[in-house]
Design a protein around this nucleic acid. Structure first.
Length: 477
RNA sequence: GACCCCAUCGUCUAGAGGCCUAGGACAUCAGCCUUUCACGCUGAAGACACGGGUUCGACUCCCGUUGGGGUCGCCA
Protein backbone atom coordinates (compact mmCIF):
# COMPACT_ATOMS: atom_id res chain seq x y z
CA UNK A 1 0.00 0.00 0.00
CA UNK A 2 1.38 3.34 -0.99
CA UNK A 3 1.29 5.96 1.71
CA UNK A 4 -0.67 9.05 0.71
CA UNK A 5 -0.86 12.06 2.99
CA UNK A 6 -2.30 15.48 2.49
CA UNK A 7 -2.12 18.97 3.83
CA UNK A 8 -5.55 20.54 3.72
CA UNK A 9 -5.57 24.15 4.85
CA UNK A 10 -8.46 26.53 4.45
CA UNK A 11 -7.32 29.61 2.56
CA UNK A 12 -8.36 32.22 5.05
CA UNK A 13 -4.98 33.71 5.86
CA UNK A 14 -1.27 33.11 5.74
CA UNK A 15 0.44 29.85 6.55
CA UNK A 16 1.19 30.04 10.24
CA UNK A 17 3.65 27.81 12.03
CA UNK A 18 1.03 25.38 13.25
CA UNK A 19 -0.08 24.73 9.71
CA UNK A 20 3.51 24.65 8.54
CA UNK A 21 4.33 21.95 11.04
CA UNK A 22 1.30 19.91 10.08
CA UNK A 23 2.39 20.18 6.46
CA UNK A 24 5.93 19.22 7.43
CA UNK A 25 4.85 16.09 9.30
CA UNK A 26 2.66 14.97 6.41
CA UNK A 27 5.43 15.67 3.93
CA UNK A 28 8.00 13.87 6.03
CA UNK A 29 5.78 10.87 6.55
CA UNK A 30 5.04 10.56 2.84
CA UNK A 31 8.68 10.98 1.85
CA UNK A 32 9.78 8.55 4.51
CA UNK A 33 7.58 5.86 3.04
CA UNK A 34 8.13 6.73 -0.56
CA UNK A 35 4.53 7.83 -0.84
CA UNK A 36 2.69 10.87 -2.10
CA UNK A 37 2.07 14.18 -0.37
CA UNK A 38 -0.97 16.02 -1.69
CA UNK A 39 -2.20 19.55 -1.23
CA UNK A 40 -5.89 20.24 -0.96
CA UNK A 41 -7.31 23.70 -0.48
CA UNK A 42 -10.43 23.55 1.66
CA UNK A 43 -12.25 26.46 0.14
CA UNK A 44 -15.85 25.38 0.47
CA UNK A 45 -16.56 28.50 2.47
CA UNK A 46 -16.47 30.91 -0.44
CA UNK A 47 -16.95 33.99 1.68
CA UNK A 48 -13.86 33.48 3.75
CA UNK A 49 -11.56 32.06 1.10
CA UNK A 50 -9.24 34.17 -0.97
CA UNK A 51 -6.80 33.73 -3.82
CA UNK A 52 -4.23 35.72 -1.90
CA UNK A 53 -4.37 33.20 0.91
CA UNK A 54 -3.92 30.32 -1.52
CA UNK A 55 -0.87 32.08 -2.91
CA UNK A 56 0.48 32.64 0.60
CA UNK A 57 0.13 28.94 1.36
CA UNK A 58 1.94 27.99 -1.83
CA UNK A 59 4.70 30.49 -1.09
CA UNK A 60 5.09 29.33 2.46
CA UNK A 61 5.33 25.66 1.53
CA UNK A 62 7.73 26.38 -1.31
CA UNK A 63 9.93 28.45 0.92
CA UNK A 64 10.09 25.60 3.42
CA UNK A 65 10.91 23.23 0.61
CA UNK A 66 7.81 21.12 1.13
CA UNK A 67 6.96 20.10 -2.40
CA UNK A 68 3.60 18.51 -3.02
CA UNK A 69 2.80 15.88 -5.60
CA UNK A 70 0.48 16.64 -8.47
CA UNK A 71 -1.80 19.62 -8.80
CA UNK A 72 -3.35 21.12 -5.67
CA UNK A 73 -6.98 20.13 -5.36
CA UNK A 74 -9.51 22.87 -4.88
CA UNK A 75 -12.31 21.49 -2.81
CA UNK A 76 -15.04 23.58 -4.41
CA UNK A 77 -14.23 22.05 -7.77
CA UNK A 78 -15.43 18.75 -6.38
CA UNK A 79 -18.84 19.98 -5.36
CA UNK A 80 -20.76 17.65 -7.70
CA UNK A 81 -18.97 14.67 -6.22
CA UNK A 82 -19.87 15.79 -2.69
CA UNK A 83 -23.51 16.34 -3.60
CA UNK A 84 -23.60 12.92 -5.20
CA UNK A 85 -22.41 11.29 -1.99
CA UNK A 86 -25.04 13.16 0.00
CA UNK A 87 -27.74 12.10 -2.41
CA UNK A 88 -26.64 8.51 -2.14
CA UNK A 89 -26.89 8.64 1.61
CA UNK A 90 -30.34 10.19 1.25
CA UNK A 91 -31.43 7.42 -1.09
CA UNK A 92 -30.13 4.78 1.27
CA UNK A 93 -31.97 6.30 4.18
CA UNK A 94 -28.77 7.27 5.92
CA UNK A 95 -29.48 10.97 5.69
CA UNK A 96 -32.57 13.15 5.74
CA UNK A 97 -33.83 16.60 4.88
CA UNK A 98 -33.92 19.07 7.73
CA UNK A 99 -36.15 22.12 7.48
CA UNK A 100 -35.13 23.74 10.72
CA UNK A 101 -34.37 27.42 10.35
CA UNK A 102 -31.36 29.22 11.76
CA UNK A 103 -33.61 30.78 14.34
CA UNK A 104 -35.00 27.46 15.49
CA UNK A 105 -31.51 26.01 15.76
CA UNK A 106 -30.29 28.93 17.81
CA UNK A 107 -33.24 28.55 20.11
CA UNK A 108 -32.55 24.86 20.44
CA UNK A 109 -28.99 25.56 21.53
CA UNK A 110 -30.09 28.19 23.99
CA UNK A 111 -32.43 25.74 25.59
CA UNK A 112 -29.88 22.94 25.76
CA UNK A 113 -27.35 25.26 27.31
CA UNK A 114 -29.81 26.52 29.88
CA UNK A 115 -30.74 22.99 30.85
CA UNK A 116 -27.13 21.94 31.02
CA UNK A 117 -27.52 19.37 28.25
CA UNK A 118 -24.99 18.84 25.45
CA UNK A 119 -25.50 21.47 22.80
CA UNK A 120 -26.61 19.25 19.95
CA UNK A 121 -29.18 19.18 17.20
CA UNK A 122 -32.16 17.34 18.62
CA UNK A 123 -33.04 15.43 15.47
CA UNK A 124 -36.47 16.99 15.04
CA UNK A 125 -36.63 16.25 11.33
CA UNK A 126 -34.98 12.88 11.57
CA UNK A 127 -38.21 10.91 11.60
CA UNK A 128 -40.69 13.59 10.80
CA UNK A 129 -42.92 13.11 7.83
CA UNK A 130 -41.48 15.04 4.85
CA UNK A 131 -45.06 15.96 4.10
CA UNK A 132 -44.91 18.35 7.02
CA UNK A 133 -42.14 20.29 5.34
CA UNK A 134 -42.86 23.99 5.38
CA UNK A 135 -43.32 25.51 1.95
CA UNK A 136 -40.61 27.71 0.54
CA UNK A 137 -37.85 26.45 2.84
CA UNK A 138 -34.82 24.84 1.24
CA UNK A 139 -33.77 21.93 3.42
CA UNK A 140 -30.29 21.05 4.57
CA UNK A 141 -29.28 17.42 4.34
CA UNK A 142 -28.34 15.89 7.65
CA UNK A 143 -26.56 12.66 8.39
CA UNK A 144 -28.57 10.09 10.31
CA UNK A 145 -25.96 9.33 12.94
CA UNK A 146 -26.15 6.23 15.11
CA UNK A 147 -27.73 7.02 18.47
CA UNK A 148 -26.67 4.00 20.43
CA UNK A 149 -23.25 2.65 21.23
CA UNK A 150 -19.99 4.46 20.79
CA UNK A 151 -17.54 5.39 18.11
CA UNK A 152 -13.85 4.75 18.52
CA UNK A 153 -10.82 5.73 16.55
CA UNK A 154 -7.39 4.26 16.79
CA UNK A 155 -5.24 7.32 16.57
CA UNK A 156 -1.59 6.87 15.67
CA UNK A 157 -0.59 9.50 18.18
CA UNK A 158 -3.33 9.58 20.80
CA UNK A 159 -4.05 5.89 20.96
CA UNK A 160 -7.58 4.55 21.12
CA UNK A 161 -10.09 7.31 21.76
CA UNK A 162 -13.76 6.56 22.16
CA UNK A 163 -16.84 8.62 22.63
CA UNK A 164 -20.48 7.80 23.26
CA UNK A 165 -22.66 8.30 20.20
CA UNK A 166 -25.01 10.27 22.39
CA UNK A 167 -22.46 13.05 22.24
CA UNK A 168 -22.63 13.25 18.48
CA UNK A 169 -25.56 14.77 16.67
CA UNK A 170 -26.83 14.65 13.11
CA UNK A 171 -24.35 16.82 11.29
CA UNK A 172 -25.26 18.81 8.22
CA UNK A 173 -23.87 17.29 5.04
CA UNK A 174 -25.28 19.66 2.46
CA UNK A 175 -26.31 23.19 3.27
CA UNK A 176 -29.67 24.43 2.17
CA UNK A 177 -27.97 26.15 -0.75
CA UNK A 178 -26.68 22.78 -1.90
CA UNK A 179 -23.02 23.31 -1.00
CA UNK A 180 -21.24 20.64 1.00
CA UNK A 181 -20.03 21.20 4.53
CA UNK A 182 -16.49 20.53 5.61
CA UNK A 183 -17.40 17.17 7.20
CA UNK A 184 -18.79 15.75 4.00
CA UNK A 185 -16.14 17.26 1.77
CA UNK A 186 -13.21 15.94 3.82
CA UNK A 187 -14.57 12.44 3.91
CA UNK A 188 -15.37 12.26 0.21
CA UNK A 189 -12.09 13.87 -0.78
CA UNK A 190 -9.94 11.82 1.56
CA UNK A 191 -11.54 8.74 0.10
CA UNK A 192 -11.27 9.80 -3.52
CA UNK A 193 -7.70 10.97 -3.10
CA UNK A 194 -6.93 7.65 -1.45
CA UNK A 195 -5.47 9.27 1.63
CA UNK A 196 -3.98 6.59 3.88
CA UNK A 197 -2.84 8.79 6.75
CA UNK A 198 -4.46 11.99 7.93
CA UNK A 199 -1.99 13.85 10.09
CA UNK A 200 -3.58 17.02 11.40
CA UNK A 201 -4.02 19.25 14.42
CA UNK A 202 -5.50 18.09 17.66
CA UNK A 203 -8.42 20.43 17.15
CA UNK A 204 -9.76 17.90 14.66
CA UNK A 205 -9.77 15.00 17.08
CA UNK A 206 -13.47 15.36 17.80
CA UNK A 207 -14.23 15.60 14.11
CA UNK A 208 -12.62 12.24 13.56
CA UNK A 209 -15.54 10.49 15.24
CA UNK A 210 -18.11 11.97 12.91
CA UNK A 211 -15.90 11.45 9.92
CA UNK A 212 -15.40 7.84 10.85
CA UNK A 213 -19.16 7.35 11.03
CA UNK A 214 -19.55 8.98 7.64
CA UNK A 215 -16.86 6.82 6.10
CA UNK A 216 -18.61 3.73 7.38
CA UNK A 217 -22.00 4.90 6.16
CA UNK A 218 -20.56 5.39 2.71
CA UNK A 219 -19.04 1.95 2.86
CA UNK A 220 -15.50 3.24 2.90
CA UNK A 221 -12.51 2.71 5.14
CA UNK A 222 -11.28 5.80 7.00
CA UNK A 223 -7.58 6.71 6.86
CA UNK A 224 -5.28 6.23 9.80
CA UNK A 225 -5.66 9.35 11.87
CA UNK A 226 -2.79 11.02 13.67
CA UNK A 227 -3.78 14.04 15.71
CA UNK A 228 -0.81 16.09 16.69
CA UNK A 229 -0.96 18.53 19.59
CA UNK A 230 -1.40 22.17 18.79
CA UNK A 231 1.41 24.65 19.06
CA UNK A 232 0.63 27.21 21.70
CA UNK A 233 1.63 30.81 21.96
CA UNK A 234 3.95 32.07 24.67
CA UNK A 235 0.95 32.45 26.97
CA UNK A 236 -0.11 28.85 26.45
CA UNK A 237 -3.20 29.57 24.40
CA UNK A 238 -4.01 28.29 20.97
CA UNK A 239 -2.06 29.90 18.20
CA UNK A 240 -4.40 31.74 15.91
CA UNK A 241 -4.35 34.63 13.54
CA UNK A 242 -5.97 36.90 16.03
CA UNK A 243 -3.43 35.83 18.58
CA UNK A 244 -0.34 37.42 17.16
CA UNK A 245 0.67 34.21 15.42
CA UNK A 246 3.16 34.90 12.70
CA UNK A 247 3.01 33.55 9.21
CA UNK A 248 6.06 31.69 8.02
CA UNK A 249 6.88 34.62 5.76
CA UNK A 250 7.40 36.69 8.89
CA UNK A 251 10.20 34.33 9.84
CA UNK A 252 11.67 34.67 6.39
CA UNK A 253 11.69 38.43 6.96
CA UNK A 254 13.44 37.86 10.26
CA UNK A 255 16.26 36.23 8.33
CA UNK A 256 15.49 32.64 9.25
CA UNK A 257 16.75 29.92 6.92
CA UNK A 258 14.20 27.37 5.70
CA UNK A 259 16.36 24.51 6.96
CA UNK A 260 16.41 26.01 10.44
CA UNK A 261 12.67 26.53 10.35
CA UNK A 262 12.12 22.93 9.31
CA UNK A 263 14.43 21.62 12.01
CA UNK A 264 12.79 23.83 14.60
CA UNK A 265 9.29 22.83 13.63
CA UNK A 266 10.29 19.19 13.56
CA UNK A 267 11.63 19.26 17.11
CA UNK A 268 8.43 20.86 18.26
CA UNK A 269 6.49 17.73 19.07
CA UNK A 270 8.71 15.10 17.55
CA UNK A 271 11.97 13.76 18.89
CA UNK A 272 14.67 11.29 18.14
CA UNK A 273 16.41 10.68 21.43
CA UNK A 274 18.77 13.50 22.29
CA UNK A 275 19.26 14.64 18.72
CA UNK A 276 18.68 18.33 18.16
CA UNK A 277 20.26 19.15 14.83
CA UNK A 278 18.36 17.10 12.32
CA UNK A 279 18.75 17.95 8.66
CA UNK A 280 16.12 17.38 6.04
CA UNK A 281 17.46 14.06 4.75
CA UNK A 282 18.03 12.74 8.22
CA UNK A 283 14.51 13.78 9.16
CA UNK A 284 13.09 11.88 6.20
CA UNK A 285 15.06 8.81 7.21
CA UNK A 286 13.96 9.01 10.82
CA UNK A 287 10.48 10.45 10.95
CA UNK A 288 7.72 8.35 12.43
CA UNK A 289 4.43 8.82 14.20
CA UNK A 290 5.50 6.85 17.29
CA UNK A 291 7.69 9.65 18.55
CA UNK A 292 5.25 12.47 18.13
CA UNK A 293 4.68 13.94 21.58
CA UNK A 294 1.22 14.22 23.01
CA UNK A 295 1.52 17.43 24.96
CA UNK A 296 1.11 20.86 23.41
CA UNK A 297 4.30 22.83 22.87
CA UNK A 298 5.10 26.50 22.91
CA UNK A 299 7.15 28.04 20.21
CA UNK A 300 10.48 29.39 21.39
CA UNK A 301 12.20 31.96 19.22
CA UNK A 302 15.52 31.61 21.06
CA UNK A 303 15.78 27.99 20.07
CA UNK A 304 14.94 28.80 16.48
CA UNK A 305 17.61 31.48 16.42
CA UNK A 306 20.18 29.08 17.79
CA UNK A 307 19.30 26.53 15.14
CA UNK A 308 19.40 29.26 12.55
CA UNK A 309 22.91 30.25 13.61
CA UNK A 310 23.93 26.65 13.11
CA UNK A 311 22.51 26.37 9.61
CA UNK A 312 23.94 29.76 8.75
CA UNK A 313 27.42 28.48 9.54
CA UNK A 314 26.79 25.46 7.37
CA UNK A 315 25.80 27.51 4.37
CA UNK A 316 28.46 28.34 1.79
CA UNK A 317 29.64 31.88 1.19
CA UNK A 318 28.20 32.31 -2.30
CA UNK A 319 24.72 31.34 -1.20
CA UNK A 320 24.91 33.61 1.81
CA UNK A 321 26.08 36.58 -0.21
CA UNK A 322 23.26 36.04 -2.68
CA UNK A 323 20.81 35.86 0.22
CA UNK A 324 21.83 39.10 1.85
CA UNK A 325 22.47 41.02 -1.36
CA UNK A 326 18.94 42.45 -1.69
CA UNK A 327 18.95 43.61 1.92
CA UNK A 328 22.36 45.18 1.50
CA UNK A 329 21.48 46.98 -1.72
CA UNK A 330 18.34 48.21 -0.06
CA UNK A 331 20.31 49.49 2.91
CA UNK A 332 22.98 51.12 0.76
CA UNK A 333 20.57 52.41 -1.80
CA UNK A 334 22.89 51.23 -4.54
CA UNK A 335 23.67 48.10 -6.47
CA UNK A 336 26.65 46.02 -5.46
CA UNK A 337 29.35 45.51 -8.06
CA UNK A 338 31.66 42.53 -8.58
CA UNK A 339 34.32 44.01 -6.37
CA UNK A 340 31.82 44.21 -3.50
CA UNK A 341 30.63 40.69 -4.05
CA UNK A 342 34.17 39.34 -4.04
CA UNK A 343 34.88 41.19 -0.83
CA UNK A 344 31.75 39.86 0.83
CA UNK A 345 32.42 36.34 -0.29
CA UNK A 346 35.86 36.43 1.25
CA UNK A 347 34.41 37.94 4.39
CA UNK A 348 31.69 35.36 4.95
CA UNK A 349 33.75 32.82 6.92
CA UNK A 350 34.57 35.55 9.42
CA UNK A 351 31.06 36.97 9.50
CA UNK A 352 29.08 33.74 9.70
CA UNK A 353 29.87 32.62 13.25
CA UNK A 354 28.88 36.05 14.52
CA UNK A 355 25.37 36.07 13.07
CA UNK A 356 22.23 34.20 13.92
CA UNK A 357 20.06 35.45 11.10
CA UNK A 358 20.37 36.80 7.59
CA UNK A 359 19.29 40.16 8.92
CA UNK A 360 22.11 40.21 11.45
CA UNK A 361 24.51 38.93 8.82
CA UNK A 362 23.59 41.69 6.42
CA UNK A 363 24.01 44.29 9.12
CA UNK A 364 27.39 43.04 10.15
CA UNK A 365 28.55 42.80 6.54
CA UNK A 366 27.46 46.28 5.51
CA UNK A 367 30.66 48.06 6.49
CA UNK A 368 32.60 45.99 3.97
CA UNK A 369 30.72 47.53 1.10
CA UNK A 370 30.05 51.05 2.31
CA UNK A 371 31.59 53.95 0.40
CA UNK A 372 34.15 56.07 2.18
CA UNK A 373 33.97 57.78 4.47
CA UNK A 374 32.17 55.05 6.36
CA UNK A 375 29.91 56.15 9.18
CA UNK A 376 31.46 55.74 12.64
CA UNK A 377 29.11 54.99 15.51
CA UNK A 378 29.29 56.63 18.91
CA UNK A 379 31.21 53.89 20.70
CA UNK A 380 33.73 53.70 17.89
CA UNK A 381 34.23 57.45 17.98
CA UNK A 382 35.25 57.15 21.59
CA UNK A 383 37.95 54.70 20.58
CA UNK A 384 39.24 57.23 18.13
CA UNK A 385 39.47 59.98 20.72
CA UNK A 386 42.18 60.61 23.29
CA UNK A 387 45.63 59.43 22.40
CA UNK A 388 44.44 57.19 19.59
CA UNK A 389 45.68 59.80 17.18
CA UNK A 390 49.32 59.00 17.38
CA UNK A 391 48.56 55.30 17.18
CA UNK A 392 46.61 55.87 14.01
CA UNK A 393 49.41 57.91 12.47
CA UNK A 394 51.90 55.20 13.32
CA UNK A 395 49.46 52.57 12.07
CA UNK A 396 49.09 54.32 8.75
CA UNK A 397 52.82 54.39 8.39
CA UNK A 398 53.35 50.78 9.39
CA UNK A 399 50.57 49.52 7.18
CA UNK A 400 51.84 51.57 4.30
CA UNK A 401 55.19 49.84 4.57
CA UNK A 402 53.84 46.32 4.30
CA UNK A 403 55.20 44.34 1.38
CA UNK A 404 52.66 41.58 1.04
CA UNK A 405 49.15 42.72 1.91
CA UNK A 406 47.70 39.64 3.55
CA UNK A 407 46.41 38.71 6.96
CA UNK A 408 49.76 37.47 8.25
CA UNK A 409 51.66 40.47 7.01
CA UNK A 410 49.17 42.86 8.53
CA UNK A 411 49.16 41.02 11.82
CA UNK A 412 52.94 41.14 12.01
CA UNK A 413 52.97 44.83 11.28
CA UNK A 414 50.31 45.71 13.81
CA UNK A 415 51.71 43.47 16.54
CA UNK A 416 55.15 44.84 15.86
CA UNK A 417 53.85 48.34 16.21
CA UNK A 418 52.18 47.60 19.54
CA UNK A 419 55.37 46.03 20.84
CA UNK A 420 57.42 48.94 19.63
CA UNK A 421 55.14 51.44 21.33
CA UNK A 422 55.00 49.32 24.49
CA UNK A 423 51.22 49.04 24.47
CA UNK A 424 48.82 46.16 24.42
CA UNK A 425 47.63 44.96 21.07
CA UNK A 426 44.15 46.23 21.84
CA UNK A 427 45.42 49.78 22.11
CA UNK A 428 46.18 49.82 18.41
CA UNK A 429 43.77 47.14 17.19
CA UNK A 430 40.67 48.81 18.57
CA UNK A 431 41.23 52.22 16.97
CA UNK A 432 42.01 50.37 13.75
CA UNK A 433 38.75 48.45 14.06
CA UNK A 434 36.83 51.63 14.70
CA UNK A 435 38.34 53.21 11.59
CA UNK A 436 37.75 50.26 9.30
CA UNK A 437 34.40 48.97 10.53
CA UNK A 438 33.01 52.15 12.04
CA UNK A 439 32.09 50.02 15.01
CA UNK A 440 33.63 48.41 18.08
CA UNK A 441 32.54 45.02 16.84
CA UNK A 442 33.80 43.15 13.80
CA UNK A 443 35.55 40.00 12.69
CA UNK A 444 39.28 39.77 13.35
CA UNK A 445 40.71 43.08 12.35
CA UNK A 446 43.70 41.71 10.40
CA UNK A 447 41.27 39.73 8.33
CA UNK A 448 39.13 42.79 7.80
CA UNK A 449 42.07 44.84 6.62
CA UNK A 450 43.25 42.06 4.34
CA UNK A 451 39.86 41.78 2.68
CA UNK A 452 39.37 45.54 2.41
CA UNK A 453 42.67 45.85 0.60
CA UNK A 454 45.53 48.26 1.11
CA UNK A 455 44.02 51.35 -0.49
CA UNK A 456 40.66 51.06 1.20
CA UNK A 457 42.28 50.32 4.57
CA UNK A 458 44.66 53.23 4.44
CA UNK A 459 41.89 55.43 3.13
CA UNK A 460 39.66 54.59 6.06
CA UNK A 461 42.47 55.15 8.55
CA UNK A 462 43.06 58.57 7.08
CA UNK A 463 39.34 59.27 7.16
CA UNK A 464 39.40 58.51 10.88
CA UNK A 465 42.34 60.80 11.37
CA UNK A 466 40.52 63.57 9.55
CA UNK A 467 37.50 62.98 11.73
CA UNK A 468 39.70 63.61 14.79
CA UNK A 469 41.53 66.60 13.49
CA UNK A 470 39.48 68.13 10.73
CA UNK A 471 41.78 70.06 8.41
CA UNK A 472 40.60 73.64 8.00
CA UNK A 473 37.90 73.80 5.43
CA UNK A 474 37.44 70.08 5.10
CA UNK A 475 33.88 68.84 5.46
CA UNK A 476 32.68 67.31 8.70
CA UNK A 477 32.11 63.62 8.49
C1' G B 1 -21.56 23.55 31.16
C1' A B 2 -20.98 18.65 28.35
C1' C B 3 -17.50 15.72 25.83
C1' C B 4 -12.39 14.76 24.29
C1' C B 5 -7.05 15.37 24.87
C1' C B 6 -2.78 16.58 27.72
C1' A B 7 0.68 17.17 32.23
C1' U B 8 9.30 15.90 33.28
C1' C B 9 14.02 22.01 34.48
C1' G B 10 11.78 29.08 32.45
C1' U B 11 11.25 26.71 27.11
C1' C B 12 11.66 22.23 23.65
C1' U B 13 12.33 17.41 25.10
C1' A B 14 14.78 11.98 26.47
C1' G B 15 12.50 8.43 29.50
C1' A B 16 8.22 2.42 26.97
C1' G B 17 8.73 -0.66 36.00
C1' G B 18 14.67 -1.38 38.39
C1' C B 19 19.93 1.37 33.63
C1' C B 20 17.36 7.85 37.12
C1' U B 21 22.00 10.48 42.10
C1' A B 22 16.02 11.93 36.12
C1' G B 23 19.78 12.77 30.43
C1' G B 24 20.22 16.42 26.24
C1' A B 25 19.27 21.25 23.86
C1' C B 26 17.91 26.60 24.17
C1' A B 27 17.89 30.50 27.61
C1' U B 28 20.48 32.12 32.42
C1' C B 29 25.00 32.52 35.49
C1' A B 30 30.50 31.68 36.24
C1' G B 31 35.20 30.62 34.00
C1' C B 32 38.58 29.53 29.80
C1' C B 33 39.97 31.19 24.85
C1' U B 34 40.83 36.29 22.90
C1' U B 35 42.64 42.52 19.29
C1' U B 36 36.42 43.63 19.94
C1' C B 37 32.08 40.74 19.42
C1' A B 38 30.78 36.12 18.43
C1' C B 39 31.98 30.93 17.79
C1' G B 40 34.09 27.10 20.70
C1' C B 41 35.27 24.68 25.41
C1' U B 42 34.50 23.80 30.88
C1' G B 43 31.35 24.21 34.93
C1' A B 44 26.87 25.89 37.94
C1' A B 45 21.84 26.50 38.97
C1' G B 46 17.24 24.42 37.37
C1' A B 47 11.84 19.59 36.60
C1' C B 48 8.98 14.18 37.28
C1' A B 49 1.60 19.08 39.39
C1' C B 50 -0.87 16.75 43.87
C1' G B 51 -3.17 12.49 46.43
C1' G B 52 -4.28 7.53 46.51
C1' G B 53 -3.52 2.67 44.81
C1' U B 54 -0.91 -1.83 41.92
C1' U B 55 4.15 -3.80 42.65
C1' C B 56 9.69 -6.34 46.12
C1' G B 57 10.31 -1.65 43.25
C1' A B 58 7.22 3.71 40.08
C1' C B 59 8.77 9.60 36.12
C1' U B 60 7.01 5.23 33.89
C1' C B 61 0.70 1.21 35.09
C1' C B 62 -4.55 2.33 37.36
C1' C B 63 -8.01 5.84 39.87
C1' G B 64 -9.08 10.64 41.63
C1' U B 65 -7.90 15.90 42.26
C1' U B 66 -5.86 20.21 40.32
C1' G B 67 -4.13 22.75 36.20
C1' G B 68 -3.84 23.59 30.90
C1' G B 69 -5.79 22.88 26.01
C1' G B 70 -9.43 21.49 22.34
C1' U B 71 -14.49 20.72 20.47
C1' C B 72 -19.52 21.59 20.82
C1' G B 73 -21.94 26.17 13.52
C1' C B 74 -26.06 25.22 7.30
C1' C B 75 -16.78 27.74 9.71
C1' A B 76 -12.94 24.75 8.38
Amino acid sequence: MTVVTRFAPSPTGFLHIGGARTALFNWLFARRHGGRFLLRIEDTDRRRSSEAAVAAIHDGLSWLGLDWDGEPVSQVSRLPRHAEAARRLLDEGKAYRCYATAGELAEMRERAKAEGRPVLYDGTWRDRDPGEAPAGVDPAIRFKAPREGETAIEDAVQGIVRVSNRQLDDMVLLRSDGTPTYMLAVVVDDHDMEITHAIRGDDHLNNAFRQTQLFRALGWEPPVYAHIPLIHGADGAKLSKRHGALGVEAYRELGILPDAMVNGLLRLGWSHGDDEIIGRDQAIAWFDLDHVGRGAARFDLDRLMNLNAHYLRETDADTLVASIRPRLEDELGAALDDRHVTRLTRAMPGLKPRANSLVALAESAAFYVRERPVPIDAKARKLLGGDAGSSLHALAEALGAIDSWDEDGIEQAVRGLARQRGVKLGAVAQPLRASLAGSTVSPGIFEVAAILGRDETLGRVHDALRLRDPAPGSPEI
